[in-house]
Design a protein around this nucleic acid. Structure first.
Lengths: 222, 222
DNA sequence: CCGTATCCAATAAGATACTG
DNA sequence: CAGTATCTTATTGGATACGG
């Protein structure tokens, strides 16, 4: 628990400074990332945020709720479990933090071999998607992570992602998000994960997400 | 100085997590904002980041330089003073943090009456600009803050901002960035600041930056 | 004047154990 | 499973002193 009532804030009218008042605390943006595709439970969030401790997660959820970025809600019966979900406004920041991620992927210090959560992987599909490479391609691509299913729909040079059952997809990838990330982004062999359905479509899917070029280590000598 | 050599990092391959490794420390993004339009000196940065202490600024500058986001450089003689400037890659994150700011401006908790630095104000012009309202408008708008001059060029339904002498502008606003912000964004009377040049153009300029609608306090009851 | 280094008090984050 | 409580450690900001 916070000992003082007053949170540390920037004394600055700039919208960016206020964004950092709202999302600048450690873990806050990553919590929003995890909620980008639908409601999640406390334990799921904790599991997908490697290294966060329960008390910090509790505090972040409370602050984000106070700010109106997320809210508590209850899944319909018979589940009836409590979950956290992004509000419509909270959801609007997802594409912005996605672009922040795309920018950072050019950093020489970025290490793509670290673990990657299902939500992070699905967001990478949205942010790294290349419409030109997807021209003329149509398909529904399912991802079964054990904890949840997601589908990515490619059509008309665009991609959309949703958390939804994989039934009816043209291809379904099943495995750990780390391994699926290695296959899609890292060029690892398809055999690392389970692939059901149209295999050639799966191969094409892998080509849609070019990694941004790394920055030169010493920076361009302008 | 940091006591441990190891910086606290996220153990996460997600680009966003890496962005926060690079820019997640307090003040870091605001330093980048201040460098968005050109090189700045230490004391200028300190003055425009209300509340930062010299040692924290020193530390942030060193970290950002290590990451390749900014670099030290020397102004050409006879000035020959040391300045900090964003690298080309570092500059690329400016529009992204601008969008973060635009998103946060919808927060019910956002207080636009707080102080606002010149760089923050100029960035707000870029992020809040409405191309439809600027249709058919052309002009060069100068801003003289005492510490530096900036110009905003509106043409063809677009706006560009640069730090440059105001000479040749159609309108020049002179005053403190706080007051100019109150005039442009807050609807304060033009008389609060000094306006030279085409006054009707100045009035039109004020209409180009609609503030985003506030979120309802309790959030939409979906 | 332009920073940098050091010390200090307050606060935020992390680890771990524990409760309903 | 969903958090709390408690303790320890790390980071922040302010003051101040110092070097170019």
């Amino acid at each position: 628990m916070r000992q003082s009532d007053e949170k540390r804030r920037y004394d600055d009218a700039c919208g960016l400074a206020h964004a950092l008042d709202l999302l600048g605390d450690r873990w806050a943006m990553l919590v929003v990332r995890e909620l980008a595709y639908g409601p999640r439970r406390f334990s799921g969030l904790k599991a997908d945020l490697p290294g966060i401790s329960a008390n910090v997660l509790t505090q972040r959820l409370a602050e984000l709720e106070r700010s109106g970025i997320i809210r508590k809600s209850k899944l319909p019966p018979p589940a009836s479990v409590q979950v956290y979900e992004a509000t419509p406004w909270g959801l609007e920041v997802a594409p912005v933090i996605g672009r922040l991620g795309k920018w950072a992927a050019r950093s020489p210090a970025h290490d793509p071999t670290l673990p990657m959560s299902p939500a992070a992987l699905m967001m990478s599909f949205e942010t790294l998607f290349d419409p030109e490479r997807a021209a003329g391609l149509r398909g529904r691509f399912g991802f079964r992570f054990g904890s949840a299913d997601y589908i990515a729909t490619v059509s008309g040079g665009a991609i959309t992602v949703a958390r939804r059952d994989c039934a009816g997809c043209d291809v379904v990838f099943t495995g750990e998000s780390n391994d699926i990330a290695a296959v899609i982004h890292g060029g690892a062999p398809l055999e690392l994960v389970r692939v059901e359905g149209d295999r050639s479509l799966a191969e094409k899917f892998r080509t849609l997400f070019p990694l941004p070029e790394k920055v030169e280590t010493l920076g361009p000598l302008a």
